[in-house]
Amino acid sequence: MDVTELLEAASLLLPEAVATENDITVNDVWEYLTHDEWEVALNLLEELGDVQPLPLAFWQTLATAAEQLRLDRSAAWCHWRCFETRNGVIRADLTLRPAHEARRQTPFSGAGVLRPMWDIGGETPAGVPDLYIAALWVEFAPFMEPGGQAIVRLAPLSPSKWQHLQPGQVITMHEDRTVAGTAVVLENQGPSVPPAPLP
């Protein structure tokens, strides 16, 4: 499928009544598609995808369209949403330790590249914290600096081990044995929609 067909297919997976806070609807997407403004249409579809849970096929289709348009960050975001659709959403308020107190001295990409370890409350048989890996996506920012604070989304390598987390629970981020940051869990929801085939 070409980009137009992919974006049209994704649009058809949206309920007609869905609208963003800014009153963007599927009709707005179709308007941009008729003028071959694919990037704008893709961005609007991403926004509409945040209004309510949508089938896996929606995010897979958008990811393919973003890849064809060579929009790397959008493609990464759509793949991230595929993961969340299958495994659930974990959001947290993360504060990194400042550079003079931690190993990290430079900012890192907010687009799901960093895969730190996390202390989520478990212990090894030896009685030391059991650390689990989860990729990190920074909401509304291209990167995160030492000492910074942001809302993040986590994509655990082993999602089942994270099901016990509750809003308000504090977890710690590690890039080595020391604490790199502290996060307060805001949301931990299981998978939203069962997988659906591509259109």
Results as ranks from 00 to 15, higher is better:
residue 121 G to N: 05
residue 53 P to M: 09
residue 137 W to N: 05
residue 75 A to L: 11
residue 43 N to D: 15
residue 125 P to T: 08
residue 56 L to M: 12
residue 68 Q to R: 13
residue 173 M to C: 12
residue 180 A to W: 03
residue 108 F to A: 00
residue 1 M to Y: 05
residue 150 A to F: 00
residue 60 Q to I: 11
residue 129 P to H: 02
residue 69 L to S: 08
residue 34 T to Q: 13
residue 93 D to I: 01
residue 155 A to S: 14
residue 106 T to M: 04
residue 18 V to N: 04
residue 37 E to P: 06
residue 10 A to F: 08
residue 196 A to Y: 09
residue 165 L to Y: 05
residue 178 T to F: 02
residue 52 Q to D: 14
residue 127 G to S: 00
residue 148 G to T: 02
residue 28 D to V: 04
residue 45 L to N: 14
residue 56 L to Q: 14
residue 179 V to C: 00
residue 170 V to D: 06
residue 75 A to M: 14
residue 120 I to W: 03
residue 161 K to H: 12
residue 59 W to P: 08
residue 58 F to H: 06
residue 26 V to E: 14
residue 194 P to N: 09
residue 125 P to Y: 03
residue 69 L to E: 14
residue 147 G to T: 04
residue 60 Q to W: 09
residue 116 P to Q: 01
residue 76 A to R: 11
residue 162 W to A: 01
residue 142 P to D: 15
residue 109 S to L: 10
residue 41 A to D: 15
residue 106 T to N: 07
residue 30 W to Q: 03
residue 163 Q to W: 15
residue 16 E to C: 00
residue 143 F to N: 02
residue 174 H to E: 10
residue 22 N to T: 10
residue 153 R to F: 00
residue 160 S to V: 04
residue 166 Q to Y: 03
residue 115 R to P: 00
residue 196 A to L: 11
residue 190 G to H: 13
residue 168 G to R: 01
residue 149 Q to K: 02
residue 143 F to M: 01
residue 128 V to T: 09
residue 39 E to H: 15
residue 31 E to F: 14
